[in-house]
Amino acid sequence: MKHTLLGVALAAALAVPAVANDYMIMAPAAPGGGWDGTARAMQEVMQAEGISASVQVQNVPGAGGTVGLAQFASTTSGDASQLIVGGYVMVGAILTNESPVSLADVTPIARLTGEAVGIAVSAASPIQNINELVEMMKADPGSVSWAGGSAGGVDHITVGLLAKAAGIDPTKINYVAFSGGGEALAAILGNQVTVGISGVGEFLPQVEAGTMRMLAVSTAEKWPGTDAPTLMESGYDVNVQNWRMVAAAPGLSDEQKAAVAADIEKLVNSAGWKAMLESKGWANTYLAGADFDAQLAKEIEATTAVLKDIGLVK
C-alpha cells in the first residue's frame, strides 16, 4: 500500500499523464487463447477488486508473443501503466524466432499461474489412449497431424519431448501451427487433424460436453478436472508446465517497479482472483521478486537446451 501511494505521488510529481492506477495490459496473442484469457481475467478482477479504476486489454497476436513483446518493449519504456502477459511459450518463441527482443528487454514482475498441457482428440476419433497415438507416430510420424499453438511454443516443445521420450525422431513430427487457441480447437473438433495439443483449460469445457477426449496431461501430477493420465504415468518421461506471467515496461524506476509489483500482489491475494482461478481451472503458482528472476533464468537455460535437442534451434 505504501509503495502504491509512493508510486502515485511520484507519478503525479513527474506529471506522468496516466494515473499509476490505470493499466493497459497487452495480451500478445489472438483473442481466445490462454494469454488473452489471463489478461482479461486480470482486467476483470483488478477492476472488481478496486485495485485499478480502469484496465484495458490490447491484443497483439503473432509468433508466440514475440510480435507483441517487441512492440511492447519498444513503445512503453518508462510507462508504469503498461503490462504484458507472457509465459513459457514466449521463452521458446524468442529462441526459435531469433527475436531481437527478449524478456531481458522488459521488467518481469511475477509468475501468476501454471497449467498443464493437454493432449486431446475429438470424441469421434478412433484413438482411445496416448499409447495408441504414440504407436501410430512410431509407424508413420507424418500421418499424425498435431494442431497446436505457434511453432516453437510450449505445445510444439511438448510434442517434441514426447516424440523424443518415445524414441521417435523429433524432427519428423507433423506439427500444424495455428495462431490462436480458438482456430486450433475448431480444427480438432472438426476432425481436421489427428490430435490437438493445448492448455488443459481450453479442452476441459469440451471434454465436459462430451465433444472431446483427453488422452494425457503434461504435468508431473494429474490435473484437477480430468482423470486423464500424466505422460509420466503412461511411460514417457515428459514433465512440462505452461506458466504464465506478467511483466511491466522496460526502464522503470525501482519505485515504479515496486508499485506495480504491489498491485499484482494485491491482485493475487484477492478473493476475486482465487474465484477466477477456480472457475478457469488454473493453478496459482504465484512467484515474484528475486525468486522469480532466478527461476526465469533457469527456465530460459533449460528451454534453450530442449529446443536444440529437438532441432528447432540451431
Binding site: 503525479a12 506529471a15 506522468v16 499523464p17 496516466a18 493497459m24 480502469s54 484495458q56
Partner: peptide
C-alpha cells in the same frame, strides 16, 4: 471513452494530469 491518446501541455492544462 478511455482510448489512449498522447497527452501534451494543452491536454494536461485543460483536463488535469
Amino acid at each position: 471513452l478511455q482510448l489512449n491518446l498522447p497527452a501534451g501541455v494543452l491536454e494536461n492544462l485543460i483536463f488535469g494530469g
